[in-house]
């Protein structure tokens, strides 16, 4: 497939996102927190939460924290992948974090007023940056951060973000736009180096964009222009916090060429790439897990652990 050159970061990129941020911030968060005894355990308290995000969409999430703690807790923000529902993040809570897993718009509990479905999410209003699906999804991640910042048990100076695939891309984007994120871990980041990514793959979800361009070839310029506002590479230069990125060199969903490109664009001086040979879209998750655990302990728990 012949693709035109990447359109790059638009001139009005910052103005566009400042305006989206202004619109989101104008809305009251209206958090609702309900204990979930069915999913709670002896050591972790589980809550179903809702809050309001951009365009007045109510967003769901799972909030977990240790059942017993004193003082304040470090916070973690995460989201699920493109086609997954958020799992209950018991494991992070057991490590002493207050953690929120956000069901961004379109997910099961957040789709009453926004439901393009999967497939179709990544191309929903893709010719218009002002209504494109990811404008809201990115805002939902910010609002998840706002939810964490509103919790009295969380130390606002110790909040990190972790995720893989779509959540990996959103981690880079959120860390770029919100300085409250103090440490970030992104695996196999999605929505990055998009012109190259869709050229290199014929697997879903990126294949959805190829499908769209095949049927609507006249919209190619408009599509590429929209995507330039949502490409992780356009955001990455603004990431200032410590960040680690893991990729699988046999990733058939988010091609490693594209994920390497976003790593190289990250502005933080404290960044490290973990490439795993023989690994696919899981990006060596089982090998990376202890590295991520130590990374957040070092940056958010002040344990003094060495890198």
């Amino acid at each position: 497939m012949a693709l035109r050159k990447p359109t790059g970061k638009p001139d009005d990129f910052d103005a566009f996102w400042n305006d989206v941020r202004r619109q989101a911030d104008a809305l009251p968060l209206e958090p609702k927190i309900t204990a979930d005894p069915l999913r709670s355990t002896d050591d972790v308290s589980v809550f179903q939460v809702y809050f309001t995000s951009l365009d007045n969409i109510r967003i769901a999430g799972w909030y977990c924290r240790p059942a017993n703690f004193s003082g304040t807790l470090p916070g973690l923000l995460t989201l699920p992948g493109y086609q997954a529902e958020p799992r209950i993040p018991l494991d992070w809570a057991r490590q002493g974090y207050a953690v929120l897993n956000v069901a961004a718009r379109g997910k099961l509990k957040s789709h009453h007023n926004f439901n393009p479905g999967v497939p179709n999410l990544i191309t929903h209003n893709i010719t218009d940056r002002n209504t494109y699906a990811y404008r809201g999804i990115i805002a939902d991640a910010w609002r998840g951060l706002d939810f964490l910042l509103a919790q009295q048990e969380i130390d606002p100076s110790r909040i990190g973000m972790v995720g893989s695939s779509q959540s990996g891309g959103l981690t880079i984007i959120t860390a770029a736009l919100r300085s409250e994120i103090k440490a970030a871990s992104a695996g196999a980041p999605f929505m990055c180096a998009l012109p190259e990514a869709i050229r290199l793959t014929d697997t879903y979800p990126y294949q959805e964009i190829n499908d769209y361009l095949r049927v609507y070839p006249e919209s190619r310029d408009a599509v590429m222009t929209t995507l330039s506002y949502f490409d992780g590479v356009s955001f990455a230069g603004q990431v200032a916090c410590p960040i680690i990125v893991n990729i699988g060199l046999r990733d058939n969903i988010c091609p490693p060429g594209a994920t390497r490109a976003v790593f190289e664009a990250i502005g933080s001086a404290d960044k490290k790439l973990y490439p795993y040979d023989g690994q696919g879209h899981d990006a060596g998750a089982h090998l990376q897990k202890p590295i991520v655990t130590e990374f957040f302990a070092r940056h958010l728990k002040n344990t003094g652990a060495s890198s």
Binding site: Y82, Q83, A84, E85, K107, L108, G117, V118, P119, D202, T203, Y204, P205, Q207, N252, I253, G280, H281
Partner: peptide, 30 residues
């Protein structure tokens, strides 16, 4: 999982050139 795609995430679209595929969303799924 809630959603079912035309072919599973990560499968090559080229699979559809050589194989008849059918994916099912059972009761409760999207």
């Amino acid at each position: 999982q809630s959603v079912v795609q035309p072919i599973p995430q990560g499968a090559a679209n080229e699979l559809r050139r050589h194989v008849i595929t059918f994916t099912l969303a059972a009761r409760g799924q999207r």
